[in-house]
Design a binder for these strands. Structure first.
Lengths: 264, 264
DNA sequence: GGGGTTATGCTCATTCTCAGAAATACTCAG
DNA sequence: CTGAGTATTTCTGAGAATGAGCATAACCCC
């Protein structure tokens, strides 16, 4: 496209000073217009199921279809800043909650034609884990926003290549649980070992041995630390009060908590 | 910059059909010009040291300084294709060798101002592991190219933010060795256990127990398989002929080969 | 042939893991 | 209030993996 534009400029004989200046320092090659967006795979756990935040697009392309939240990187923004801004805008989380949200770069996608607009759009996907969010999120741009269970998304066609990005994000999440402490990003600031175990079970989709999980978690250095308090009452259907823990500060787990199904 | 161009178009009253079509579907926001490059962290082992391929820039910006090989993503290329093309161009590896090269996306960098040109440049960094390469590589664009030991790069100032990208790549390489079979990408198609151990020792920068390493590698399912043959002669300074192995097809290692220094 | 070197295998004590089960503390139905 | 069911936490014992040392045999160089 830029080639076309330059050609036209030259054919028209219209070459303004600013343009000349710009071209002088520009790389000798010419490029079509390019845009860079960030898209967010924001995961949370609701009702013992993994959910992802999706928005309904209010503008073409893909108007009316569901997509990952995201947007163009602004001129003065670093990538991580853009991702953090989108996260704040789209989730409506309070700052205290945002501090505990895990947010990390996932992967960059740029296949030609992944965006139907006459603009080559690369997207830098970010992965975020949010704790239980009060309620469904109000969209900022007159769009609809909703937490969708992962099961539900499998029957949906997502806009762009967002299905692929989502799959990549879920896969990364599964792996990250093993060797990082990020399961704590899915729960509140104080949590029981059972709640933490529930995170692993939901994300991995398999049952874990309660006894072994407990032993392992409290033995990994810096993963969790006791608060000295317990829950107000036992579980829904009985059981003793569980001790409350908070995150112990470690980001990497040594040794890792390996998935049972992977080790066989 | 793009804003400027559009304004000029309108002021001039020159609005060609293709442009009108383009603007109609273009996002309402306007963006400064943006470019996307791929940069490669290509690692190899030479003389029992980790080396990275660097090129001396023949053009400004950073003319005369050393940088990671890379270049702009072409309009019809996917990111992975661009990375593969650059790898081929810069290393001069033969196709048979290229097939065995590990090449994976590392991370995307896009801090404003990381490229001094009046163009916001995002770069998608890729990480590659090459087997022993015959000899220093001849540059394709009249630039100088060389394998630099990692120790040497610590005293150099690299162009752009390439020092940061390189550090990220080395860190990723260290981690990848633990749970993936990619150490085999550093050696030839057939290799001895000692050669493989040497890869780990060089990348991790620590000595490993030969006996334990041997036991571990051959016991991990699918990591290596025997060829039935041995080396022609023993080691440089003695020792028996070593058995030759080839890669066994597994990409993930179960269980992983953990770094001794990390597990303490 | 002899001294130094290396590939490979073995041993053994220690640690980690898995699966089951015990002890305890709580909820809930009746 | 009582008993059945459930959940948290701890324990146990078998089996596997790990780390360090040593043994053997093959090989290079002198």
């Amino acid at each position: 496209m830029l080639i076309l534009r330059n050609t036209q400029f030259e054919k028209d004989g219209v070459m303004k000073e600013a343009e000349a200046e710009w071209l002088k320092t520009y790389e000798p090659r010419a490029y079509p217009p390019v845009g860079v967006t960030v898209d967010l795979v924001i995961l949370t756990i609701r009702d013992k199921e993994l959910h992802v935040l999706l928005i309904e697009r209010g503008e073409p392309p893909f108007k009316g279809e569901w997509a990952l939240p995201g947007g163009f990187v602004q001129p003065d923004e670093d990538l991580a800043e853009a991702a953090a801004r989108e996260l704040k805008e789209e989730t409506g989380l309070k700052q205290t909650d945002l501090d505990r949200v895990y947010l990390d770069q996932l992967k960059t996608f740029g296949k030609p034609g992944r965006d139907p607009r006459p603009l080559r759009v690369f997207t830098v996907a970010y992965l975020a884990f949010a704790p239980q969010v009060p309620e469904p999120v109000a969209g900022t741009d007159a769009k609809n926003a909703a937490w969708m269970s992962l099961a539900a998304t499998r029957n949906m066609k997502l806009a762009f290549d967002h299905a692929e990005i989502l799959a990549e994000g879920v896969e990364r999440a599964r792996n990250k649980l093993e060797y990082s402490s990020l399961a704590t990003s899915f729960v509140g600031p104080e949590f029981t070992i059972s709640e933490l175990r529930n995170v692993y079970e939901v994300v991995w989709g398999e049952q874990l041995h309660p006894g072994n999980f407990h032993r392992k978690v409290v033995s990994v250095d810096g993963y969790v630390e006791e608060t000295g308090r317990t829950t107000e009452r036992g579980g829904e259907r009985g059981g003793p009060r569980a001790r409350l823990y908070r995150w112990g500060g470690a980001t990497q787990l040594h040794p890792a908590l390996l998935r049972p199904s992977e080790t066989t």
